[in-house]
Amino acid sequence: MKKLTYSTIINKPRDFVFDKLTDKSIYPQWAKAWGDGMTYEGKWKKGGYMSYFDHSQGGTKVIFEDLKPNEYIRARHIAMVNPDNVEVELTDDMMKKWIGSLEEYYFKEEGSDITKFEIVMTVDEAFREMFDNAWPKALDYFKEVCESN
Results as ranks from 00 to 15, higher is better:
Ala31Cys: 00
Gly35Tyr: 04
Asp36Leu: 06
Tyr40Val: 02
Glu41Phe: 07
Trp44Lys: 08
Lys46Pro: 02
Gly48Phe: 08
Gly48Thr: 06
Tyr49Cys: 07
Tyr49Trp: 10
Ser51Glu: 00
Phe53Cys: 00
Asp54Trp: 01
Asp54Gly: 01
His55Met: 03
His55Asn: 06
Ser56Asn: 01
Gly59Ser: 05
Gly59Ala: 05
Gly59Val: 03
Thr60Lys: 09
Thr60Asp: 12
Thr60Leu: 12
Thr60Cys: 12
Thr60Glu: 13
Lys61Glu: 15
Lys61Gln: 15
Lys61Val: 05
Ile63Ser: 01
Ile63Phe: 06
Glu65Ser: 08
Asn70His: 13
Glu71Ile: 01
Tyr72Leu: 09
Tyr72Cys: 07
Ile73Val: 14
Arg74Ala: 12
Met80Lys: 14
Met80Arg: 14
Val81Arg: 11
Asn82Ile: 10
Asn82Leu: 07
Asn82Thr: 10
Asp84Ser: 12
Asp84Lys: 15
Val86Lys: 15
Val86Ser: 11
Glu89Ile: 08
Leu90Cys: 09
Thr91Gly: 12
Met95Gln: 15
Lys96Ala: 03
Lys96Phe: 01
Lys96Met: 04
Lys97Leu: 11
Lys97Pro: 01
Trp98Pro: 07
Ile99Trp: 04
Ile99Tyr: 04
Ser101Phe: 08
Ser101His: 08
Leu102Phe: 03
Leu102Tyr: 04
Tyr105Leu: 11
Tyr105Gly: 05
Tyr106His: 10
Tyr106Ala: 02
Lys108Tyr: 02
Lys108Glu: 14
Glu110Met: 15
Ser112Gln: 12
Asp113Ile: 10
Thr115Ile: 05
